[in-house]
Simulated scan of single mutants.
Amino acid sequence: MRTVTSEMNGEPRALARTTSTPKTGRNSDRAAEGSKSLRRALLLLRTVAAHDDRGMRLTELASSTHMHTTTTHRLLSALQDERMISFDPNTKLYKLGLEMLLFAESAHRMTIKDQLHQVLVALAQDCGEDVHSIVPAGDDHVLIDKVEGTELGRITSPAIGCRRPIGVGAGSIALLTAISDAEARSLYERNLPHLANIRWTTPDRIWRDIVAARRRGFSVVKGQLLKDATAISVAALNNVGEPVASVTVFGPNSRLGRSKYDLIADRIRQQIVATGKFHTPLCSPS
C-alpha cells in the first residue's frame, strides 16, 4: 500500500491506494496447455507426412511421438475433423488429409509463381501488353500471377485467382499441347458439361483451338472473352515434360495480329527457357 498526503482543510491526510497485481493462474495454465496441444498436433502431422506413402497405425504414431495412445487418438480425431488427416477404417492407417494436400498444392503454385514472375515482367516490358501465368488444378486452371504492360489502350486480362475449366482460354489450351492425344481428348470430354456453359465460345470451337495449338506447339485464342482481344500462350514444362504452367500475352487484335503469333510465341519460349527451370513444347506431341 502506498501512502499519499493531501492537504484538506489545512491538515495533511493519508490516502490509501492499492496497486493491482496482474492475474495469473488459470488463464496462463490454459494458454500453456493449448500451446502444448498445438505442438503435439503439429508433431503428429509431421510424423504422418513423413510416412504418408504407406500410412501409420495409431500405436505406431503414439510410439513415434512418445505420447499416450489416448492423447494421440484425441488429437488425431481433431485433425481428422479438420480434414488435415484421413483415416482408412479398413486398413486402420492414418495418412494426410485433403486440407494438407491443398496446402501442398498452394505451396507448389507459389513456387512456380516465383519462378515465372520475372518471365512475366520481361515480356510485359518487351511486348507492352498484359502477361499472366496459370497452373493446372485438377480439371481446372487457376491464374496465379499477372504483370501489366506499358502500351496505351491495353486490354485488361482476367484477374489473379480466376479459376476456369481447362480448355477455356489460350493459357488453358496451351497446357494441352504437351500431353498425349488420348489425355487431351479425355480431359476435354470430362469438361464438356462445363465448357457448354461458357458464354463466349462453344465446345466445338474450343476443340478446334486445341487441335490447332497441338499442331503448332502454342495456343492462340482470338475474339472470344473479348471481341477485340487476342491471347497467345506457351506451356512451361518441368524436367519430365509435364505441363505445370503456361504464360500468356493478352492484347488487342490490332497489335497481336496473325503476323505476330510466331514472334510472340518465340519470345515467350525464350523467356521461359531462360529461367533454367522449365522447357517448352516445340511441336505437336507424338
Rank of each mutant, 00 (worst) to 15 (best):
G97M: 01
I155W: 04
M56C: 08
P203H: 03
R255L: 06
A32H: 12
H108I: 00
H132M: 12
H73P: 03
D204E: 14
R26D: 09
T248I: 03
M8Y: 15
F250A: 02
I166S: 05
S259G: 09
F103Q: 10
D145R: 02
T21P: 11
H279P: 00
C162E: 09
S77Q: 13
L15T: 10
L43N: 06
G276C: 06
P158K: 00
N239L: 15
G161A: 01
F87E: 07
V221S: 07
R185D: 08
A182I: 15
S254K: 15
P252K: 06
R109G: 06
T3Q: 13
M67F: 01
Q115K: 13
T201V: 09
R74S: 04
T71N: 06
T59H: 04
L45T: 00
V244I: 11
S77L: 12
P158G: 03
C162K: 12
F87K: 04
A212C: 09
A212W: 05
M110S: 14
G171L: 06
D262A: 15
V142G: 00
D114Y: 09
P285L: 08
H51N: 12
V234M: 09
N90Q: 15
D209G: 01
N27P: 14
T280F: 02
S63L: 11
L256Y: 03
